[in-house]
Amino acid sequence: MKVLIGGYTKKTSKGIYELPFTGENNDARLSKAENIISVGGPTYFQKDGDLVFAINNAGDEGGISAFKLSTQGASEVDHYLTPGASPAYVGINREQKLLYTANYHTAVLSVFSYNNDGKLDLITTTTHKAEILGPRPEQTDGPHPHFFDQTPAGNLVSCDLGNDTVDFYHLEKGKLKHLAQYKNEAGFGSRHIVFSKDGNYFYVVGELSSKINVVKFNEDNWNFENIATVKTIPEDFTAHNGAAALYISKDGKYVYNSNRGHNSITVFKVNDDHTLSLVQRVSTFGDFPRDFNWDANQKYVVAANQNTDNATLYLRNAGTGTLTPIQKEIAVPEGTRVLFTK
């Protein structure tokens, strides 16, 4: 098993790094990070077999690049770049070989197809418009979609930080059809979303509010019911914080999010009524943890600290949901995306 970490390339990072994973339980460790893909600003990426699809910040242009991994190294096999900023998020459907990108700066959502060789084809795009923008400084300049991926029923969903909205789409005959919209509270800063195991609830994290909103919804008639909202940071924490990544365990029992500023991962238990109860806030032992992730068995968790160029490895208790740090100060530059791989 290995861990891939990529991020910004503003200081010393050259792109995506591979860290070998050895040992088990409390003796598990990540070894030295080695650069395996050289690319500008791979702040998010996905993997399908020997293909890696990464955000590419190529100076005056931005987009995504496809790389093929081999024993000889990684080679770029295709890219799709347009003038301006690169996207913030890449989603993937490995069965249908589709990619979904959300561009925070240009407000463009894109859908791509790819083949076994990594060849990319743009299927369609849509652009979010300024609707009722939130009141915070980060929102007043326009819409900012920060997430674009699939729903449990196979539709698509985007979180828009500028508009405080969750928008649902269906890919129909090569076009994106807007189906419904859920509006978060003003200033929420909708960023990432996960769904309950039964597909009847979603949890959306607000970057600007440091909150998670629990919503009951129906993908047939698009009824939404606001169930509850919880803070991801302590009430008495007054310094700047930006809530970032959001994950739910595969058994549906625990929800996790990272806090950039409070520099922690928050663990919530999912109650029988799908509300959330605080279980733990654990330090990431660094500054600005944008992403974290777990292995296929969700036994190990790695958090990447962007500003302090380090990562932390945790052992996860599946019964209680808690995280125990077992390795700190793992050197990796400017990390913003974590992905376990074989």
Results as ranks from 00 to 15, higher is better:
K2E: 12
L4Y: 15
I5T: 04
G7K: 15
T9D: 13
K11M: 04
T12G: 08
K14Q: 15
L19V: 03
N25R: 08
L30K: 04
N35G: 15
S38C: 13
P42A: 11
P42I: 05
P42Y: 02
V52W: 01
N56F: 14
I64A: 11
S65W: 03
S65H: 11
L69D: 06
E76Q: 15
V90N: 08
N93T: 09
A102N: 03
T106E: 12
L109T: 03
N115R: 12
D117C: 04
G118M: 07
K119S: 14
K119M: 10
L120C: 12
D121C: 02
K129D: 13
I132E: 13
G134F: 04
Q139N: 08
D141A: 02
D141G: 00
G142H: 10
P143H: 10
H144Q: 03
F148A: 10
C159R: 03
D160Y: 13
L161F: 09
F168Y: 15
K177R: 12
L179H: 07
Y182F: 15
Y182K: 07
E185W: 00
G189T: 07
S190M: 09
S190W: 05
F195G: 00
K197E: 13
V204G: 11
S209M: 09
K216C: 01
E235D: 11
A239I: 00
A244R: 02
Y254C: 06
Y254F: 14
S258N: 10
S258P: 09
G261W: 02
S264Y: 07
F268D: 06
D272E: 11
D272Q: 08
V282R: 09
F292S: 07
W294N: 06
D295Q: 09
K299H: 11
K299A: 02
V302N: 05
V302A: 04
A304V: 15
T308A: 07
L323S: 08
V338Y: 05
L339Q: 08
